[in-house]
Design a protein around this nucleic acid. Sequence first.
RNA 1: GGCUCUAUCGUCUAACGGUUAGGACGAAUCCUUCUCAAGGAUUAAAUCGCGGUUCGAUUCCGCGUAGAGUCACCA
Length: 474
Amino acid sequence: MGDIKVVTRFAPSPTGFMHIGGVRTALFAWLWARKNKGTFILRIEDTDKAREVEGSIEHIIKSLRWLGIDWDEGPDIGGLNAPYLQSKRLDSYKKYAQILIDSGHAYPDPYTKEELDTFRKKSEQENKPFLYRDYRPKDFGVWDGTRALRFKTPEIKSYHWNDVVRGDLSAGVEALDDFILIKGDGYPTYNFAHIIDDLEMGVTHIMRADEFISSTPKFLSLYEALGITPPIFVTLPPILADGGNKKLGKRDGAKDILDYAKEGYLPQAMMNFLVLLGWNPGTEKEIFTEGELKEVFDINRIQVSGAQVNLDKLDWMNKEHMKKLLADEIQNNIFSYLPEEFQNEKLVGVVFERISKWSDVKSMIEAGELDCFSKSKTPHYDKTKLVYKNSTPEKITQNLKSVIQALEALNENDFTMENVKNTLMLIAEIEGNRGEVLHPVRYALSGKDKSPDPFIIASILGKNETLSRLQKAI
RNA sequence: GGCUCUAUCGUCUAACGGUUAGGACGAAUCCUUCUCAAGGAUUAAAUCGCGGUUCGAUUCCGCGUAGAGUCACCA
C-alpha cells in the first residue's frame, strides 16, 4: 500500500466564496496527501465562463490559506503539471477529444437547444428519465468545433464499482448517456475535463461529495473508452444545513468560510470542527491539532451518512483551542477583531475568559461585553440597581465610601487586580457581607447587571477612572 | 416518475453477530459565586417499522417508511 505515491487534488470552480462543505472536501483531500507524504494539488475548474465570479480564485486561495491548508502545485505557485487553470489547458482536452473522435467514441451534437428542450419535456411528461442517447444520430458528421461534442457511450450496461467509503456501488443503465465532452463555446465540461486533468496530473484519489455518485457510470464508460484505470473513489458524506435536512448550499444560508474568520473563530478550531464532519478517529479524542490530524486521519474511517452542521459544537471547539493558545497567540488572533480602544494588552485575559459566553468575538463586542472597559463610554446608572438585594441605600453609600477611602491608599502602580481584590475582600469581611460591597462596586464600574468582576474592571480602568466612577455612583 | 444512496440520544458519533448500547455538544439539577460567564459534580436522553437468518441482530438479508442525491452546452 505504501508503494504508490498518493496524489490528491481540490478542484473548485471560481463561482464565488467557499462554504463549509467545499472546504471540508479540500481538507480531507489535503489531509490524506499529507498523511501519506503525497502531493496535494489545487486546480481551478473555470470552464463555465457565465458563472464565473471575478476575484473568486484569490478568495478561494485566501480561504484555504487561512485554514492552514497548503498545496504543492497550484495556479499561484505553478508546478510540474502546470497550468492549473482549466481554461489554459484546452489543448489537452482537444487532444483527447480527437482520440475519441478517431476511435468513433465522439460525435458532434446535431440538435439545437430548442430541439433538446422538446425531447426533454417529452420524457418529463412520460415520467421517464431523459436520455439523449435515444436520439443519437445515425450518421456522425464532422466536428468543426462550433457544435457540442458528445461522447458516444460504448456499451449500455449496468456498472458496479468500489468506493472507499461506500463500498460496492452500482447503477442502472439509466445512469449512462451520451454526455457532452466539449461545449459549443470550446470549453470542456466538468465530466470530461476533470478526467483528463486527473489523468495528466497523476491523481490517485478523488474526494468529492455524494452528488457525483450518480454520474460515476458516465465517468467509468469514458475511462474505459480511453483505456484508463480509474483512480480511487472517495465519496464524502453530505453536509446538511443546520437544523434542516437539506444539503448545505449557498442558497440555504451557507456562509463564506472567511466570515467565520472575521467573527473571531480560530482556523485550528474550524479545521478541527470540519474534520469531524464526516470522519472520526474511532477513539474518544475530539480535540486535534493540525499535526495530530496529519497523523491520524484515515479515509477508511470516513462516515457514510450525512451530518448536520452543529454550530454549538464549533463554539465549544473554538473555546477548547483558545485554551491551548499562549498569551501572545491570543493577542495575535483576537486583537484584529477588536475595536481600537479595546486593544489593550491587559484585556487579553478578559477577552479570553469572557469569550465563552458568546459564540465569537464579533458578537461579544456587539453585546457590549467590553463596554465597561471603555474610558469613553461612561456607564449609565440606575440608582436602585446599585443597591444589593435587601440592603439600604445608606448602607451602600457608606460601603462605597469605605471602598474609595481604601483604594485611595493604593499607589497608581499598585493598582493591580490582586491588590484591588485584597482590598475589597478585606472591606467585605469587615462589613460581613460580600454582596453589599462587591455588587455596588461592580455596578458602579460597569453600569450593567451582568459584567466581569469588579477587580478586573478596576485594574484595567486604573486608579483615577475607577475612583471617579465610584464617586459618581455615590 | 426512473436510477442511486442513507437511517443509533435533540445534534455529531462509538460499539470482531454476544456491552448495564459508550463518548462529545447542547439541556437540566446541584456545588462554587456580588452578577453573567468560567470551573467541579450529577441526571435525563437513542438502535425508524415489520419480517427473515441465527443459540443470540444496532450489526447480515428482504420489504415498508422517511430523508438525501441525480436525470444541464453547471460543476
